[in-house]
Simulated assay, not measured.
Amino acid sequence: MQFSVYQESHIGGRKVNQDRMGYSFTRDALLLVLADGMGGHARGEVAAAVALQTISALFQREAAPYVKKPRRFLEEAFVAAHRDIHAYRLAHEMPETPRTTIVACLIQHNTATWAHCGDSRLYWMRDGRILARTRDHSHIESLIAKGLVPPSARATHPDRNKLYNCLGADSLPKVEVGGAEGVLPGDRMLLCSDGLWSMLPDDDMARRMDAQPVARAVPDLLRAALEAAGDGGDNVTALAIMWQGSSVVDGLDAMTAGAMPTVISTEALPQDLHSTTILGAPVAPRPAQAPDADAAFDDDEIEKAIAEIRGAIEKSSRILK
């Protein structure tokens, strides 16, 4: 297994960076995770950090050296992270449970499976084209799916920032799982927070990702998003890989490969070795019963979830000021 990888985060115009990202890998499996803590004063960075630690700990337990049931793993890992966020709040006597959006991708045996809650996104790209991306769990995306507003309303609709699914809410998250798709050498996977994708058109991101190695493409994307957002911009975070599949750097000559310090090859790793960039002591997750991944929110559930999430964040902001 071989891939090139790069991750970067910028605080933007905010006082706190509530985004977190990282990756973990074994000889045969790679896990990418990105979380965007919700709410300016609701300690979203805590929820994001706990979520990454829990999911990474589960990966280290289950990947031996690969995960047997990827879809089930992602569903259960998200639910375990949700419960550990609530446990953290109780242990630290926080006035409200912090919340976070999350997106993760598990790649093994040249197959990618991904999952998300909220509006942190995954893009799967090939030759400058977007083959797939996650659909935000937002009110505007629900309206677009029903044909009530056109896709062009994504950037201007007053409800574009209203989310109805996340980790840390009072109810269990509904984990949307996708993928089980074959990836080819040269394919790019980009995980990013809304501070990035909301500032740049999808086709522009795909073009920039295809034009250069990920170690240069990700900083380029962040700079462009920060410039577009101005002084009041959100946190901007991205984690990207270019998949190379086999132990040989497919599609790259030896000189180019040697010049890319971000290339990771796992072929020589011991079967029981796990490596991760996710900081912090692993949270000991409990076995979790995953919700029905195929169950969709109805209109009443969406409105209730949006109101509950916004109300909790506003209440927390008043208490912590």
Score class of each variant (00 low, 15 high):
V283K: 06
P282E: 06
Y6S: 07
R216M: 11
R318Q: 09
V248N: 12
R126Y: 08
D204Q: 14
M38G: 06
R207G: 10
P270A: 13
D194G: 04
H116T: 08
K174Y: 00
R223F: 07
A80F: 03
H157Q: 02
D136H: 01
S4I: 09
R72T: 14
I309M: 07
Y123S: 07
S138I: 02
G245I: 11
V103D: 09
K68Y: 13
D292N: 10
L200F: 00
L143Q: 07
R160H: 01
I319R: 11
R154Q: 12
H86M: 05
P65H: 13
V183L: 14
Q2H: 15
I130S: 09
L167N: 01
A80C: 08
P219Q: 03
A305N: 09
A307W: 01
D294Q: 05
L32W: 09
L52R: 01
H109V: 09
S193Y: 02
L148A: 11
Y123G: 05
E141C: 08
I319A: 09
P213G: 02
T237F: 02
C166A: 14
P98H: 06
T266L: 15
V177Q: 02
V236Q: 03
Y23I: 07
V103R: 08
A240Y: 10
V103N: 07
G233I: 02
G128N: 05
G147T: 05
A132I: 02
R207E: 11
I309G: 01
M260S: 09
P287W: 03
A153G: 01
T276I: 05
D84K: 08
H41R: 15
V149P: 00
S265P: 06
R43T: 03
I313H: 00
G13A: 03
A49W: 04
S152E: 15
A281Q: 13
F78E: 06
R154H: 05
C166T: 06
G168E: 07
R89E: 08
A215T: 11
A91C: 06
D299W: 06
A115M: 04
G280H: 02
A153T: 05
L106A: 04
I140G: 03
D159I: 01
S120N: 08
K146E: 15
I306N: 02
G118E: 06
G245W: 15
P282T: 04
K304M: 11
V50T: 12
S9F: 05
K68G: 13
D202C: 04
P213Y: 06
V33H: 09
